[in-house]
Structures are given as C-alpha cells and as structure tokens.
C-alpha cells in the first residue's frame, strides 16, 4: 500500500465507484423482487450472466444492431419472467421458490457451459480515458454510471407517477386491500416481476462492457446483489443504488489493501453485517 501515490489511488477508487453504479442497478432490481414482491429468486445471477453472454455474441458474432437486439432481449426476458411468475413463483412458499429458482439457475449455467464453453469472454473495448490532475477516468465506466443512475431514476418516476406504477405500489403495500379496490393483484405482481427482469437484462448489457463473462459469473453477482440490498435494507430501491456505489468503493479499497484476500474479507464483512444489522443501513420507510 505504501508504494501507491495519490493519483493512482484515486483512479482505483473512482473506477470502483463507477462499477458500483452498475452493481447498484442490478441490485436494486433484485431488491425490488425480494423486498417488495417477496420472491426469493436465486436464478437472478444466472439470468444476468445469460444477458451478458447474449450481448457479447450479438456484438461479436451475430451482427444485429443494438436496437433490434435490445427489443428482442427485453421482450423475451419480459415474457419469460412473466410466465415464470404466473405459473411458478406466485403460488408457492418462499423455500420452495428458493429451490426451484436454484434448479433454474443450474440449468442456465450449465446450458451456457454447453453452448458457449466455460472460456471467459470479454468484449475487449479499448477505453478512452480523461485525465484530471493525474487521476485517470475511463469514459465507458463514467457513461455506465450515469446510464444506470438515469435508468433507476426512470424506474422510480414510473413507480411514482404512472397509473401502473401506482398500482404496483398499492399491491406491494397491501395485497388484500388493493384487490378490494379492483386491482388484479396477481397480474400486477407478475408485471412488476417482469419489469425487474427487463432492468436485469439492461444491466447485463452494461456489465459486459466492463467485465469479462463466464458461466459461473452468476453466483458472484447474485451474492453481490444480495449483499448490496441487505446493506440498503430490503425493498429500498434508491438505497440499493447508493449502497451499490458503497460496495464498489469497498471492493476497490479491499483490493488495494490485499488483492489476494479481497474476496475473503468481503465475505467476512458480509457475514458480520448480516449478523449485526440485518435490517440495513438505509432503512426503508415504506416497502417499495
């Protein structure tokens, strides 16, 4: 740690902060599922990994433009998650859901191994950097930070301003009363679940520009998103974004202290945090 000068220290921290932004995006979608919709989704990380893979192949092999690809990806994620929610998750208890989603995660992960091989793939973008007083900031990461912030802001606005968003919040707050007011609660929950999956697909596209992807990557992102939404407090979407930034920051610092034991320390902090304060730092006033 002693050999590190201030500008490179700041470079690492800012890069951690920017990746933290994307972490924040997919974690807030996970937080929305778990906290607001009460679905313990263990296949989350694998779907994220699949979206990263598909983006990679779209860019490198298939020659589809980004807009048609986005439409196809978001559409298929929306439909698949709607069906999963409708036929599987909504009817069952939490621990059954955990096992089912785990099975689905296993299928996706191994299908990726079978189809794409376990070799890690990276887009290998040559990044432009801007230098401010010796501190290097890569433009891609900066764009991703702002993009994820904008997406989340859009989602928040959707929840607060539109009719559909309001029904989602009503159902999350009290399912029975919402049903009495003439809202089709189950359909609203399915819809909300699908929306969180669209957000997931978007963060997959963004993640693959920053990191390489391999079939086992899902487990790591799953763990990260769980960690982040615990720190934020379950169901707190805005808090999840900020604690994503915090985790990005923390990862960078741990890597500076000791890159060998960074992951070990990370999990240790996670376990200690879960024991000491399972309700989260940014405690949510209302869920959702």
């Amino acid at each position: 740690m002693g050999s590190l000068d201030f500008p490179s220290f700041m470079t690492i921290l800012i890069s951690g902060l920017c990746t933290g932004g994307v972490y924040g995006l997919f974690s807030s979608s996970f937080s929305f599922q778990l906290g607001a919709l009460n679905v313990a989704d263990f296949s989350f990380g694998s779907w994220l990994m699949l979206s990263m893979y598909l983006t990679f192949f779209m860019y490198k092999e298939w020659n589809i433009g980004i807009i048609p690809f986005g439409v196809i990806l978001f559409g298929s994620y929306f439909i698949i998650s709607f069906l999963m929610s409708k036929f599987i998750y909504i009817k069952r208890k939490t621990d059954d859901n955990m096992i089912i989603t785990m099975g689905i995660s296993l299928i996706i992960q191994n299908a990726a191994t079978l189809l794409f091989s376990s070799y890690p793939r990276s887009l290998g973008i040559i990044e432009k950097t801007i230098v401010v007083g010796g501190v290097q900031i890569t433009i891609t990461k900066l764009i991703m930070l702002f993009l994820s912030a904008i997406l989340l802001l859009g989602f928040q606005l959707f929840l607060n301003k539109t009719w559909t968003g309001k029904t989602i919040r009503a159902v999350v707050q009290n399912k029975e009363v919402a049903s009495l007011m003439g809202i089709n609660s189950n359909r609203v929950i399915n819809l909300a679940f699908s929306l969180s999956y669209v957000m997931l697909a978007a963060s997959g596209i963004m993640l693959v520009t920053l990191f390489s992807v391999e079939p086992t990557a899902g487990g790591f992102y799953q763990m990260m998103s769980f960690f982040i939404c615990i720190i934020a407090g379950l169901g707190n979407i805005r808090g999840a974004f900020f604690s994503g930034l915090l985790i990005g920051f923390l990862t960078a610092i741990l890597n500076i202290i000791s890159s060998q034991f960074a992951m070990v320390m990370m999990f240790l902090i996670f376990v200690i945090f879960l024991v000491v304060k399972p309700t989260g730092l940014f405690t949510a006033k209302s869920r959702g």
């Binding site: 099975g103 996706i108 992960q109 299908a111 191994t113 079978l114």
Partner: peptide, 11 residues
Amino acid sequence: YAGLPGIIYGL
C-alpha cells in the same frame, strides 16, 4: 458435453 449433467440436475 460439459454442461449436460448439470442441466439434468437442475431439471
């Protein structure tokens, strides 16, 4: 077929 047993497991 590296991933096949895992797919069967998951199913």
